[in-house]
């Protein structure tokens, strides 16, 4: 289905403007996300990476602009149509945002209960499958989120995001707060799931290793818009002080070495 010659934009953001009081976060921001790619969003603190994610998934009302997800304008679409689109994306928040009163399995089943007409047994099986797909041990099913480590919570959040077999997955700093081994495993997991399930991944991250390891394309947020976008190799050629510092600094070089070493 994926045609390389004619790319198919699953998310189209045009002329987006976000403003909190007098503070303008985004101004005239354009962004396209292609089907089946892993897009990494980077930018300094306060450049509105998370705000962009929240705006696309409808948690933040922009001051101006249009956002089209899977062919539906999510800002103007009627309620019913919006709900339809919502079942086709999954969001994993930074700290998991799992429902604290429910077990991990119940968390994963929560969106299924709402949107699917399946028997409870099948939902349990599918929930268990999602949990094992994200690499959590079986024992984790019956645990409460408060009984999990930070890394496990992130995986559980990903399992919940995958509950409805979405076409797009939004990840907010998926590897923040994980140890390097856990972060690398999480990167592998996202890459693997992306290949196996053919999903599109929209990822806000600061982790250079993730950017090198799994992102097909990078979009840099600066000066209230998407300053540049493209494969990571092209980033070092960009003539902008922040981008230069970010992609040619010591950490970036280390990540690059690691990537070429592992291949």
């Amino acid at each position: 289905m994926v045609e390389t010659s004619q790319r198919d934009a699953v998310i189209k953001v045009r002329g987006l403007r976000n403003q909190f009081g007098p503070q303008v976060v985004h101004d005239n921001l354009d962004l396209d996300v292609w089907r089946g790619e892993v897009l990494g969003i980077v930018g300094g603190s306060g450049t509105g990476k998370s705000v962009l994610l929240r705006t696309i998934v409808g948690l933040n009302q922009p001051a101006a602009g249009s956002i089209e997800v899977l062919g539906t304008n999510v800002l103007t679409a009627p309620e019913e149509e919006r709900r339809q689109v919502e079942t086709r994306w999954g969001v994993a928040f930074q700290d998991g945002a799992l429902f604290s009163a429910l077990t991990v399995l119940q968390n994963v089943m929560a969106p299924m209960r709402e949107h699917l007409k399946l028997s409870t047994n099948l939902m349990k099986e599918l929930g268990g499958l999602k949990i094992s797909l994200v690499g959590l041990p079986h024992l984790a099913c019956d645990k409460l989120p408060s009984e999990l480590s930070g890394g496990m919570r992130k995986r559980a959040a990903l399992a919940r995001a995958l509950a409805l077999d979405p076409q797009i997955v939004f990840l907010d700093e998926p590897t923040a707060g994980l140890d390097p081994i856990g972060a690398a495993a999480y990167d592998d997991l996202i890459g693997e799931l992306q290949r196996a399930l053919g999903i599109t991944v929209f990822m806000v991250t600061h982790d250079l290793d993730s950017l090198y390891a799994i992102c097909d394309r990078i979009a840099v947020l600066a000066e209230k818009r998407v300053l540049v976008e493209g494969p990571i190799e092209t980033m070092t050629d960009v003539d902008h002080p922040w981008v230069q510092e970010y992609f040619t600094g010591p950490r970036a070089r280390a990540a690059q070495v690691k990537k070429s070493g592992s291949q």
């Binding site: 349990k124 099986e125 268990g128 499958l129 094992s132 797909l133 079986h138 099913c141 196996a196 399930l197 053919g198």
Partner: peptide, 19 residues
């Protein structure tokens, strides 16, 4: 091929133990 691949991925991921 991608359908078969997904079926195999899921089979591998399925828990050894029953619920």
């Amino acid at each position: 091929p991608d359908h078969i691949a997904l079926i195999e991925t899921v089979t591998q991921a399925a828990f050894e133990s029953e619920m």
